[in-house]
Amino acid sequence: MAQSIDDVREEHAVHDHDHDDHDHHDHGGWSLGPLTLALPMLVAFLLNGRIEWFTNQDVRLWATLFVSVCVQALPFLVLGVTISGLIAAFVSPEIVQKIVPKRPALAVPAAGLAGLALPGCECGSVPIAGRLVSAGTPPAAALTFLLAAPAINPVVLVSTAVAFPNNGELVLARFLASFVAAITVGLWWAKRAEGSLLKSKQHDHGDNKGRWERFVDVASRDLVHAGGYLVLGAMAAATLQLIVPRSILTAVADNELYSILMFAALAVLLSICSEADAFVAAGLPQFSLTSRLVFLVVGPVIDLKLIALHTGVFGRRFTMIFAPVTLLVAVASAVLMGRIFL
């Protein structure tokens, strides 16, 4: 296993280089910066109130949903990139190798438990996981952290308990199902030993910089990078919220299998924050607790906005394998825990 991790890092370094060369083509000088900033603003001001389409109720609702997903995610993203900047500036690969257990059988559960410590939604954990990989953490452990952090942190568990005041067992089932899913995916990744697929696309140029300069540079680079993908995800989520009204739910309430499948699909499409999804699930009492547990376990680990973020930070090839596997494992784990506890 140690061998394969080294391979990853080597591959990573090579990849960095490729990307550097690529970036050099991104010419344009800095004078374009303010211009590209001013132009959309000018267009927006000119459009304001002039075109009837913009006052259309559905367009305004789309705008409300889109902007609110962005505004909600921003503080968590800023927290996430601040931590990822600190990791890049102050945590060397040597330190990581000392802290993180060598054997995946130990490293993966430990990374899962570390997820307990990051209070926030899922948007913040993606840049952190990407940076952990760059800093030399075994990919399997970083992925486990990525999946566990948004699902089992105290804020999410408390909001679940508040949303379901009479179903304490649901909180326990959510915790266990999410934890088991994160560890399963992590161990699967460790076994594949094909770690080269996981390449953090977060780059760090200029090793001769001071630590604080490096911190700000990495943090702001990660912020605009992940932020750009977050905006893509928010657009998709706002659009689907309009296309798939939640009222459609009532159609399949009687069939357990259909409702499980539907809740898994909704969790992916609606992209609701892990701190908020319990309230949405609580508002649908006509469905079984197990099918709603599927919603709570799938949403924090994989949804449209996360797929966009994963693509940005880890690459498309990785996401095409990681997303479906995570979805399947999360559904299976939720159904299993539902059987045991609910």
């Binding site: 900033l37 267009v43 750009g228 905006v231």
Partner: peptide, 16 residues
Amino acid sequence: VGWLLLLPLVVLISVA
């Protein structure tokens, strides 16, 4: 892709 971060701003101003 980072330029997309300006989109929420544009939407806020144009669609209100």
